[in-house]
Simulated scan of single mutants.
Amino acid sequence: MAEDGLRLTLRFLGVGGAAAVAYAALAALMTRAGVAPWIASAFCYAVLIPVVYWTQRRVTFRSNRAHSEAFPRYVATQALGLNLAVFLPLLAPKFASGQPLVFFAAVVAGISGLNFILLKFWTFASRA
C-alpha cells in the first residue's frame, strides 16, 4: 500500500515537473520572440492544461472517470491553484518581497500538495 502511494506521488511529481519545464521553456521562448511576458505565461499555461490533464489522468492517476466530469474538475483545480499563486503574494507582501525564494518555494509546495489531494480525491476519483 505504501509503495503504491510512493509510486503515485513520484508519477505526480514527474508529470508536474515535466509540465513546469515545458511551461518555463515555452514562455521564455515566446518572451524572447517579443511576446509580452504576461501573455506568454497565460498562453503557455492555458495550452498545457489539456496536455497535462491527459497525462495526469492516464499516467499519474490512471483514472477512468468520464472526461465530461474530470476535465471541468481539472480546470477548476488549475484555476484555484493559479488564483492562489496570484493572491498569496498580495496577502503577504512583506514576506514575499523579503524572502522571495522561500516564499515562492512554499507557494509551489502548498499548491502542489493541494492539487495532489484535489486530483486524487475529487477530479480523478472513482465514482462510488
Rank of each mutant, 00 (worst) to 15 (best):
Y74F: 15
Y53R: 01
S112M: 06
V108L: 13
G5V: 09
L114H: 08
V107Y: 08
A25M: 05
F121C: 05
L48C: 06
G16T: 07
A125H: 13
I117S: 11
Q99W: 12
F103I: 02
V47A: 13
P50V: 11
N115G: 06
P100F: 07
T9G: 10
N83C: 15
A20D: 02
T9V: 15
E3T: 15
P100S: 00
F104L: 10
L13W: 11
K120M: 08
A92S: 04
G98T: 00
A40D: 03
G113W: 09
K94H: 12
S97H: 10
D4L: 11
L29R: 01
A109P: 06
A109C: 14
P50F: 12
V51W: 14
A24Q: 04
A46I: 11
F12W: 08
G110Y: 05
T123K: 04
P100V: 03
V15E: 01
G5L: 09
H67C: 13
F71T: 03
S41I: 10
P100K: 05
Y45A: 15
G17F: 13
A46K: 07
A125L: 13
A27T: 08
N64R: 14
R62H: 12
W54H: 02
A128G: 05
Y45Q: 10
F12M: 02
F104M: 10
I49Q: 13
A19W: 10
G113V: 13
F61S: 00
Y23T: 04
S68Q: 14
L84E: 06
A33S: 13
Q99N: 11
A33V: 13
N64H: 14
G16R: 04
Y45G: 11
S126E: 08
Q56I: 06
L90F: 13
L118N: 05
V86M: 13
P100C: 02
G16W: 03
M30H: 07
L90T: 09
S126C: 03
P89E: 04
F43C: 03
L26E: 09
G81K: 01
V47G: 02
V107G: 10
V75K: 11
N115K: 07
M30A: 15
L84N: 05
L26T: 13
L91M: 12
L13Q: 10
A18K: 13
A19K: 09
R11N: 06
P72C: 08
T77H: 00
Q56L: 06
Q99D: 09
G113P: 07
A27V: 08
V52W: 03
L80P: 03
A33P: 11
F95Q: 03
L10V: 15
A36R: 11
L101F: 14
N64S: 14
L82K: 01
P100M: 06
C44H: 03
A27K: 00
A109H: 10
I49F: 09
S63L: 08
F61N: 00
A2E: 06
A36D: 01
A22W: 10
T60W: 01
G110F: 11
L13Y: 12
V108D: 01
R65P: 01
R7D: 12
T123H: 04
L118A: 08
A2W: 12
A20M: 07
F103P: 01
A96I: 03
V35I: 15
A85F: 02
C44S: 04
R65I: 03
T55F: 11
V52A: 05
T9L: 14
